[in-house]
């Protein structure tokens, strides 16, 4: 019985003492206020910057809620937002809401179409066979003005925090 009490006490202690300061260590206060249009137009100039931006959520990935797309007032500029270690998920009820997101703009080198094709042909399983199958709207939105540049580089914001803002759209 004493051992059991000891184990429970130790578990509670570990859980309580580690819950602070786990928000990735990135300084949110240094975030630069930018518009989605600005980021989409010249993402290179803000790569690895901590940015803060507002937009309307147009899509939340329903297979895990680990990414969402936001758009600006013109509805022509879209940006992919991914969760970081400090955000568990984006809830699907965020779709259609205005949000303010703070996070780091990251560049990713995408595999070419041919490379994707090769990967798809190699895989016969249902889970990883096709990126589009996982999140159909994502590929569609990527084509519709998401931040990209030459050399198959795409950009997304890795959100460290976000909040829903009550603003009429």
């Amino acid at each position: 019985m004493k051992n059991l009490i000891l184990i429970i006490t130790l578990t509670i202690f570990i859980l309580s003492c580690g819950s602070e300061g786990t928000k990735t260590g990135i300084k949110e206060t240094e975030a630069i206020n930018v518009s989605i249009a600005e980021l989409v137009a010249s993402p290179e100039s803000h790569t690895d910057d901590m940015v803060s931006l507002k937009g309307q959520v147009t899509h939340v990935c329903k297979h895990g809620g680990q990414k969402m797309f936001i758009t600006d007032e013109s509805q022509e500029n879209n940006l992919l937002i991914r969760v970081s270690g400090s955000i568990p998920e984006f809830d699907v009820t965020l779709e259609g809401s205005m949000v303010e997101v703070t996070g780091k703009l990251l560049a990713t080198i995408e595999a070419s179409e041919e490379d994707h094709q090769e990967v798809d042909n190699d895989q016969t399983g249902t889970q990883n066979s096709n990126k589009t199958e996982d999140c159909p709207t994502e590929e569609n939105l990527k084509k519709e003005g998401s931040a990209t540049s030459d050399n198959n580089v795409t950009y997304h914001v890795e959100a460290v925090s976000f909040k829903e803002i009550t603003e009429e759209v």
Partner: peptide, 20 residues
Amino acid sequence: YKSYYFPTDQSLMIYLKDGH
């Protein structure tokens, strides 16, 4: 009703509190 969005020129998405 929450908001709306045009995914393409031919389609309209109207966002609701629990759906669309």
